[in-house]
Computed example of a mutant assay.
Amino acid sequence: MEGVLKPGTTQLSVVARVTTWPLIGLLALPVLGWLLGGGIWHWLTVMVFAAVSLIDPFVGPDNINHRPEDEAALEKSLFYRVMLWVLVPAQWAVAVFSYWLFTGGQLSTLEQIGLLLSSSIAVGFGATAAHELAHHGQRFDRWMGILLFTPINMCDFAIYHNYGHHNRVATPEDPGSAKYGENVWVFGPRSIVLKTLMGWEIEAERLRRQGRSPWSLHNGMLWMTVLPVTWLVVMISLFGWLALPLFIAHFLFARGLLAVADFLEHYGLARRRLPEGGWETIRDAHAWDDSFLVSSLFFCQIDRHSDHHANVGRPYQILRVMNDAPRLPFGYLTMLWVAMIPPLWRKVMHPRVEAYWDSGAAAPHGRPENLPERYRADAVY
């Protein structure tokens, strides 16, 4: 395929070699559980998710950065785009299969719970690939990302994230940038609501600049709302009202997954305000980085987060580990669980955050009452 490097010309990162096969495999697990006879096998995806979370720290990082002269070939390769596109029909097929099986009346309550959780994980992880597609310069790719967001009711993410988060990250203006001392259980629900509201504000302002009404059909947020609502109406029409709890579960897992990822990615890090009132340029210092291999495989290497923000258009297969960026102690699959236990999160992360502040690379980001006194004068509130 055009753009693919010839064998032996470079050392590829594991993600560049494996691409989206782990996500495709994850999608297949609810179907495999049914083929294996159901029962405990309807919990298969849950078991695999727990297993990969446990092994991630032991597998360790993949710190390969591609040579600059090889990046162009990797970036223009159609192969990486196709591997993302494949997830759209796969995700939709597994989602519809899950609705059919969940509402069919042949499952016990325990099997229904297992299928609900398993399909939420399998379908919800489509959000990681959708995030990648939403950043692509090609209109077709961006729409494929929106289609991946549709079954999990996250289409509005494409507007908030691209035009809100990436402009306001690591400032108090961004609901997706967590402050030092925040509890993820408070941050998550608040950020989900505020990110959606910001999406409406972004579109309203865009249309006002064009002399159009925010309530016109040109409002992207309107269509980003219509798509998942249409999905839900179709699922209820096909499978009855029992489809509603499955839709809600898919929504909650995906939204929660990306909200906790947001919490990890910028916790306590702020850009400094400039004398004229704006914010300093986004740098490596404003996002927590890591490259633990198993996490990278399931998150489309977005855990190389500093490079993602410093170079927004860089596709996932060539994202780099940035040596000057702050580093999470473990991969996302581990830190997701750490974040959900606030005392453990503070024990693991606060010494690391404060040590990075002491380096002067990033300003403290937090409310005065939550910050150690020695950081309050330099903090961004």
Rank of each mutant, 00 (worst) to 15 (best):
G38T: 14
A355Y: 04
T281W: 06
V226C: 00
T19N: 06
R327E: 11
W200P: 01
D289N: 15
P7K: 02
T9Q: 04
I40F: 10
M349R: 13
P364E: 02
V380R: 01
P7A: 06
W241Y: 13
W34Q: 10
Y332L: 11
V321L: 11
P364Y: 07
V229I: 14
R304V: 05
A249C: 02
A90E: 00
A28Y: 03
G181D: 10
G199T: 04
A379F: 08
I40T: 08
P7M: 00
W21A: 07
W345M: 10
V14D: 00
L26F: 10
H66R: 12
L207M: 06
V233F: 09
V234W: 01
W34G: 13
P228C: 07
G176Y: 06
Q11M: 01
N162V: 10
D290S: 15
L115F: 01
G33R: 12
T45D: 00
R352G: 11
L227M: 13
I236M: 14
E369Q: 15
V52F: 12
D262N: 15
L26V: 06
Q11R: 14
R367Y: 01
N323G: 09
M47Y: 14
S77E: 08
K195S: 15
G181E: 04
E369Y: 10
Y332A: 13
S237R: 02
F263Q: 00
E354A: 13
A95V: 07
P89S: 01
H250L: 09
P189Q: 10
F102C: 07
R346A: 04
V184N: 04
M322K: 14
V260F: 09
L264Q: 07
D307V: 15
W34A: 15
P364K: 03
K179A: 15
F298Y: 10
D262A: 07
P326K: 14
A361V: 02
L5K: 03
H350G: 03
K6Y: 02
Q91M: 13
E205C: 04
D62N: 14
A204G: 15
H218T: 01
P151A: 07
H365P: 02
L269T: 12
H165V: 07
A339G: 05
G33W: 07
W337S: 05
A339F: 05
R206D: 04
H135P: 08
Q138M: 07
F102T: 02
R283A: 15
T9F: 01
R212G: 00
A16N: 03
S119Q: 04
T150R: 05
F330G: 10
S77Q: 11
A379E: 03
N153H: 10
A254Q: 05
D289T: 13
N311A: 06
A361R: 09
L222H: 05
L32I: 15
D307N: 15
T171D: 03
I24M: 12
F239D: 11
S291H: 13
H165F: 12
R142G: 08
L35G: 04
V193R: 15
S295R: 00
E354M: 15
F97E: 02
D262I: 00
R212A: 12
A95C: 05
I248P: 00
I146C: 04
P372L: 11
V46F: 12
G313Q: 05
S13C: 02
S306C: 08
K6Q: 11
L257Q: 03
G188D: 03
L269H: 11
E132T: 08
Y267V: 11
P245W: 14
V229R: 01
V48N: 06
A90T: 04
I113T: 08
G104V: 03
L107W: 00
V18G: 03
M224V: 06
W85K: 09
F187P: 10
W43L: 01
